[in-house]
Amino acid sequence: MKISFTFEPKPAVQQELQQQFPTHDFRFGKGAAPERDTAIWVTYGEDVKVAAIENLPELQWISVASAGVEKMPLSLLHSKEIIVTNARGIHKTPMTESIIGHILAIYRNLPAIYTLKNEQTWEKPRGSKELRGSSALIVGPGAIGEEVGRVLTAFGVEVTGCNRSGKTIEGFSNTVSLEKLDDQLGSADIVICLLPSTPETHRLFTIEKFQLMKNTALFMNFGRGNVVSEKVLVEALKAGEIGGAVLDVFEVEPLPESSELWGLPNVVISPHVSSHSDFYVERAMEIFSRNLSKWEQGEIDLENQVDLKLGY
């Protein structure tokens, strides 16, 4: 069976895969199109286009080494009954550390301290506050959100989750369904958005939702950029509807130099790096290896299988 990688893992990872699965024909080629007789395609997802799929008559499974699949032609893949899996869950450690790091930096006023150091000024900046006793609303608490909630709870934060079903999340103070999001926005000191990109979540955060929030609230978007219009977010920030924002994802990436977000003092811009880690590919390949072992046994109920109708 031919397995085509359209990115190149480190040589040691390639060798390990070939040793673990010696009966398969692995092909590794960064930027190269999969060969026509490819049965399994391992990719970051951005090169999965209609033309490529139509040129792969034997394709059965696409293993995406990232979490997002919204740019892929999901309806076509569904019609062709091609299985898609992703690397959901491998980001939870680096993204949790990034999110918690930003929160602590803002609450303990670290940016001001760093600025004073660079200016060689001995001055005690005002504005530091404790995280303990505050409240956080995590919108879209999957594997990443659950870990963020666990760590925030350890800091003494009251955590509420908001997911599609309203299903209870262990360790959270409360969990509500997405349709009850508006009822929770007014009580949160920190709103953390980790939603995927789907028709249901597209521009979910309207100006009315920001108006429901505390004018001191910190809005954090670490899910997908299109859950909020940049124009709406700028309007909410300039009007003082919320206290500030930390953004790792944007409607347009890279963020254009002309974007007003760059000039707003109450905005932290992170260039979509919160999930970066030395262990990224290693963790993604662990999921792929477990799934390939299942595949060899004839199992098609694979780990992290994407619901192509829902888009995640």
Rank of each mutant, 00 (worst) to 15 (best):
L76W: 13
A65R: 03
K214R: 14
R150S: 06
G45M: 07
G133F: 08
G149W: 06
P199H: 14
F21L: 03
V234L: 00
L292Y: 08
K124S: 11
K80M: 11
D278T: 12
I169N: 02
F222I: 01
H276T: 13
R203D: 00
G298I: 00
N226T: 13
V252S: 11
L310S: 15
E241F: 10
Q19A: 10
W295Q: 06
A65F: 10
G149A: 07
L310E: 14
Y280L: 04
T43G: 07
K129I: 11
F5A: 01
T153H: 08
S79A: 15
E299I: 11
V148E: 04
S229W: 04
T43M: 05
V139N: 07
N215R: 13
Q14R: 12
K309G: 15
P196Q: 12
E147N: 12
K117I: 08
S275W: 14
V69W: 04
G145K: 01
F219L: 01
Q60H: 13
H202S: 10
A33R: 05
F28T: 05
N221R: 03
I242E: 03
I99A: 14
K231A: 05
P256V: 01
P125W: 11
V151D: 05
A188G: 04
A284S: 00
A52M: 14
S4G: 02
S289I: 00
G68R: 06
W61S: 00
S128C: 15
L56F: 03
G29H: 12
S134Q: 09
H91Q: 05
S187C: 13
Q18N: 03
K309P: 10
I144K: 05
